[in-house]
C-alpha cells in the first residue's frame, strides 16, 4: 500500500505541474491568437517549463519517497515524467523546437527518474540501518533539495540547446 500511495503521489505531482503549465500555455496562446501574437514562443516556453519543473521535482519528491520506503519508486517516478507527454507533444506541434531536442530532454528525464529510483534501494537500506526514521526523513528531504538545487545550477548543461 505504501508503495502504491507513494508512487501515486509522485504521479499526481506530475499531473499537477503538467496541468499548471498547460493552463498557462493555453491561456497565453489563447490571448496571443486574436492579436496575431506568437504562439510558437509560448509553446517552446511551455516545453522548457515542463522539462525544468519535472527535472527539479523528480529529486525533490522522488528521493525522500525512495529513502523513506527503502524501495524502488520507479513506477511513480517514470509516470511523473510521462504524464506531461500529451502536453509536450501538443506544444511541440505548435513550436519551432526540434523533435531531437524534445526527445533528448525526455530521455534525460527518464534517465534521471531511473537513477533516483535506484537510490531507493541500497543507499536507503544503509541509511535506515544507521539512522533513526526521523533522521532518515530529514536526510532524504535535504538530499532531494540539494540534488534539485544542483540540477537548477547546472541546467545549462543537461537541458538540450534547442530548448533553452
Amino acid at each position: 500500500m505504501s508503495l502504491n500511495r507513494s508512487s501515486s503521489g509522485l504521479a499526481i505531482a506530475g499531473l499537477v505541474i503538467t496541468a499548471v503549465v498547460a493552463t498557462w500555455w493555453l491561456g497565453t496562446v489563447g490571448l496571443a491568437l486574436p492579436s496575431s501574437g506568437n504562439p510558437e514562443r509560448a509553446s517552446a516556453q511551455a516545453i522548457l517549463a515542463l522539462v525544468l519543473l519535472r527535472g527539479l521535482l523528480l529529486p525533490a519528491f522522488g528521493l525522500p519517497a525512495g529513502l523513506r520506503l527503502a524501495r524502488a519508486t520507479w513506477p511513480g517516478l517514470l509516470t511523473m515524467v510521462a504524464v506531461a507527454w500529451p502536453v509536450v507533444a501538443l506544444a511541440w506541434s505548435a513550436s519551432e523546437v526540434t523533435l531531437h531536442a524534445v526527445l533528448a530532454a525526455e530521455g534525460a528525464l527518464l534517465a534521471l527518474a531511473v537513477v533516483i529510483g535506484a537510490l531507493g534501494t541500497a543507499p536507503a537500506h544503509l541509511a535506515r540501518e544507521r539512522l533513526s526514521a526521523d533522521a532518515t526523513d530529514i536526510m532524504a528531504t535535504v538530499a532531494g533539495l540539494l540534488v534539485a538545487l544542483g540540477l537548477w545550477v547546472t541546467r545549462q548543461h543537461w537541458i538540450p540547446a534547442g530548448l533553452s
Partner: peptide
C-alpha cells in the same frame, strides 16, 4: 493512476499522447 496498477501507469501517457496528437 487511480484505477490501474503502478506498473501499468507508464502505458497510459504513451497511449493518450498518441491519441491526442
Amino acid at each position: 493512476v487511480m484505477l490501474l496498477k503502478p506498473f501499468a501507469w507508464i502505458a497510459a501517457p504513451v497511449v493518450v499522447t498518441a491519441l491526442s496528437v
